[in-house]
Design a protein around this nucleic acid. Structure first.
Lengths: 156, 156
DNA sequence: GTGCATGCAAATCCTTTGCAGTGAT
DNA sequence: ATCACTGCAAAGGATTTGCATGCAC
């Protein structure tokens, strides 16, 4: 039942955020939030739109973009730019802060944590007089599978 | 005369790269390389195109994009995605590897170095069986100036 | 009822592509 | 002389915007 509780929690948080900012609690917004917290990947706006459509929800692209922005603002969703110019998103409530590792061949995304990143962030903020809000660390490389595939191709 | 030597060095490196890959040494390519190594900022493709135009060089956008890609391939230029979906570039030969700190209000870019990032990169590569090629670490925050400005606005 | 949010389509921004002409090899 | 590279303009993909309609308040 952990899933259910998580969804209820984020829904409550979203409602609070909307109330505080005097924004409306439309059904579209909650359908989108629910869909995002049903997924477990790094999706893009178009993919989310398609998923909603396939579930017979008539929600426009504009609303998808609009709601994603709202959810990023209230920190229930995180936005990433993984190299290509296509924004990717992931749910962010209830998960430990983490960073990403991406395969430059197959685009597979892995996650990892390292406390040193937070240390670096804090230290550099102090040193350079910046009030750090968040960060993005992406390691680009080739995953084992793609590495092997390439070697096979090379030796042909 | 350090500048001149640097420009000569990168020109030589670019020529070698072109020869090895059997690509042509066109004057446009060298004009673009020279312009990039005359700058000292994080520019975008359009800005580079505009700079060339203002210097009376008739170089098309297509060639600018094409050459940037070439220069990224031979590692004379680095490409970044700083949040928004607009690629930014900087010269990368002769400079220590570094990461970036960006003001989310005024877009100011600062640079910093921390050896721990390389350690993290190596460690995670081993742990997750990735052959890491490069990384991107961006710290987002507010610079002192913007921070002060905001406080003034708040207390009005 | 008021006016914010939606849906739709058009507009915009950045980047890539197709193609005819040019110039490096 | 060949054919990779260029310039141009059109296409493309992601995102934003304008406006009429709908619905949360």
């Amino acid at each position: 039942m952990k899933q259910v509780n998580l969804k209820e929690q984020v829904k409550k948080l979203f409602e609070e955020h909307l109330e505080i900012h005097q924004q409306r609690k439309t059904k579209e917004r909650f359908i989108i939030l629910d869909e995002i917290y049903s997924r477990d990947d790094h999706f893009d706006a178009e993919g989310l739109y398609a998923a909603l459509k396939s579930k017979k929800h008539q929600i426009s692209r504009a609303t998808v973009y609009n709601t994603l922005e709202l959810l990023v603002e209230c920190e229930l969703v995180t936005k990433h730019q993984f190299g290509n110019n296509l924004a990717r998103f992931e749910k962010s409530f209830g998960y430990r802060q983490h960073d990403h590792l991406i395969c430059i061949d197959c685009n597979k995304v892995l996650e990892f944590c390292d406390p040193r990143i937070h240390q670096i962030s804090t230290r550099m903020g102090e040193l350079l007089h910046f009030n750090i809000a968040h960060h993005s660390l992406i390691l680009y490389g080739k995953c084992n599978g793609c590495e092997v595939k390439e070697q096979l191709k090379g030796s042909r």
